[in-house]
Structures are given as structure tokens and as C-alpha cells.
Simulated assay, not measured.
Amino acid sequence: MFNNMKQLDTELLVGYIDNLGVDVVRQMLALYIEQSQIYLDDIAETVENENQSGWQEACHKMKGAAGSVGLSVVHQQLVQVEKSTDEWPRKREYLALLKHENQLSIITFETWLDSQ
């Protein structure tokens, strides 16, 4: 069992497992993986088009999804950048970091779930 998993809200996830079972939590993760790719594509599109309102909307959607499946680092990152008015090159950097953290968090979640 992992003791210090800052990437995951394990208290939330244990509650899900206790109430819904591991199989349902696996389904939740699978849905998040699908949806997060759509959200990341949407965020990338807002950067390409330099669309500030679209940026906020797309980040907000992904923030909610990440929070609901216990991906703490991804959620916190989105809290920090959602309302950012930084220049677009900086937002490209945020997007790259977000993609990286999202992938790490998914792997961490999968590993944690396998240990349950």
C-alpha cells in the first residue's frame, strides 16, 4: 500500500471503493482517461486559437473531472491556471505540464487500484 500519495486523494478513493466496489472505481478511471483526453484536446485548441473564455471553460471542466476521481495534483494544477491571463506561450507550458501530470496521476491511480 502506498503511504504518501500526494497525487491521489486516497481518502476519497477508499470511500468510493467501500461504497461502490473496485470494479466501479475502475470504470470511473476508464471514463476519466477517455474524457481527460477530450479535455486536453479542448485546452490545446483554446491555446491555438488564443481563446481566453474557452481556456477557462475547458480547464474548469477538467478540474471538476480530476477532482471527482481523486487526482489531487491535476486538480490543483487546474485550480492554479484556470483563470490565468498569462500570455499564450506560458499557457502552452501549462498545457505540457498538465498533460505530463495527468499521465503520471493516471499511472499512479492504476497502480494504487491494483493494490486494493
Rank of each mutant, 00 (worst) to 15 (best):
G21T: 07
G64Y: 08
R26N: 14
T108Q: 14
F109I: 11
V73W: 01
M5E: 13
E45I: 08
Q7K: 01
E50N: 15
Q116W: 09
N4H: 11
L20A: 09
E110L: 12
Y39I: 03
H75T: 04
A65L: 01
N102L: 02
L95F: 00
A58K: 00
M5Q: 04
D41F: 00
L97H: 10
Q52W: 06
D41V: 07
L31W: 00
Q56S: 13
V14T: 11
F2W: 08
Q80K: 07
E45W: 11
L98F: 02
L20I: 05
Y16K: 06
E57Q: 10
T108P: 10
V79S: 11
T111F: 08
D23K: 14
M1S: 15
Q103R: 12
E101W: 10
E93M: 09
S72C: 12
A66Q: 01
I38K: 04
W88P: 10
K91M: 11
R26G: 02
P89T: 00
N51V: 05
Y94M: 03
V74D: 03
H100K: 14
S68I: 05
H75M: 09
A65Y: 02
E110R: 05
D9H: 03
E45A: 15
V74Y: 08
R90W: 08
Y16C: 08
G21H: 03
T111W: 00
K61G: 08
A30F: 01
L40Y: 02
L13S: 06
S68H: 03
I107T: 11
G15Y: 06
I43D: 00
V24M: 12
Q116D: 00
L97T: 15
C59K: 01
E87L: 14
E87P: 05
V14H: 08
Q35I: 06
L40H: 05
D86N: 04
K83D: 14
Q56T: 09
K61T: 07
D23E: 14
Q56V: 07
E45M: 12
V81N: 02
G54V: 08
K91A: 04
V24G: 02
M5N: 12
N102F: 05
L29N: 05
G54D: 03
I17P: 01
A66H: 01
W112E: 04
Q7R: 07
M1Q: 09
E87W: 03
F109P: 06
D114E: 14
G15Q: 13
K99H: 10
L20M: 13
K63A: 01
M28S: 11
M28L: 15
L40C: 05
E48S: 09
L113R: 03
